[in-house]
Write a protein that binds this DNA or RNA. Structure first.
Lengths: 154, 154
DNA sequence: TGGTATAACATGGTATTTTATGGGAATCAA
DNA sequence: TTGATTCCCATAAAATACCATGTTATACCA
């Protein structure tokens, strides 16, 4: 993966009656620039959709392949879940993707979808769930500041 | 990151009705020279906006990628908070960036923004809050001079 | 050193482009 | 045919680039 990229920011977009959502323009730019595709799957740990570049899943596959932990059953199971669940999404000329019923239901998304950048990947939340989640995270930070020092290195 | 750079000085610029602010010219020079971009997010520890180069976040993303596995819970929470809040800011031909409502509100910035250099990053304060903060810092130094030794850098 | 010319900068305003989003037609599949 | 998916067009709003001006800082010269 030569070029670097980051999925950033938190953006709220509407989901219309057909299930279409605009992918944030920044995200689109990344996909175009890298000539890759967006892949989405149900998060294994939270009630949200998770997305990344197809390249990232490629990397995951390779990592598993080369893993010294040949017998890691857990990892194996998890990857099965992800690869089995993941689906490629292309956006139309206006930048929209069409999420599936399965994904929308799992994330409890109705009218609006919240895109949350995570660096190499991103998540899509329902408005309600994201409010709660962000609150939880900020709460956690307050009580555990030491582990969160992105500034410290360099 | 080959080239070195430092965000320095304290500079007050006006914020217009649209939320536009001139990025200090020194900062602009750094961004240009390194071919990077400015990224801003709400400080986790103070009522101010924090900014850095996208390169710094890139490095963080890579570190996280390499230090924890794909399914790590720590990675999950961390990345949500940092990357979800961070936003890329490009400046126009006159050197201005457009800060978002969210950031301005969090830092309680109305008409003027105070840019404070912090080396590898910088902060943006409201005029009022910065006065207080600087006072607090100087007060702290006076009473705690011994701790100002090489080890305690930041 | 003092004064002036020049360049850089901050800042207000305006124009242009991009983006999100709704709706409809065309295409495809069950 | 019916339902769904893709493609295309239209529009309003928001983001961005561009232009103009006064001010400050810098360079230059006597």
């Amino acid at each position: 993966m030569r070029k670097t990229f980051l999925f950033l920011d938190t953006i709220i977009n509407k989901v219309d009656a057909k299930g279409r959502v605009s992918l944030p323009s920044d995200y689109r730019a990344i996909v175009k620039e890298l000539g890759s595709e967006i892949v989405c799957y149900r998060s294994l740990t939270a009630p949200c959709i998770e997305g990344c570049l197809e390249d990232s899943l490629e990397k995951l596959a390779t990592d598993i392949e080369n893993s010294t932990d040949f017998f890691s059953e857990t990892q194996d199971d998890l990857t099965n879940l992800i690869f089995g669940d993941a689906k490629r999404f292309t956006f139309d000329s206006t930048g929209r993707i069409m999420l599936t019923e399965k994904l929308l239901q799992y994330a409890q998304i109705k009218e609006s979808a919240v895109f949350v950048g995570k660096g190499r990947k991103f998540q899509i939340w329902s408005a309600e769930n994201w409010v709660k989640e962000e609150q939880r995270l900020r709460e956690k930070v307050k009580q555990n500041r030491p582990t969160l020092k992105p500034e410290g290195e360099n």
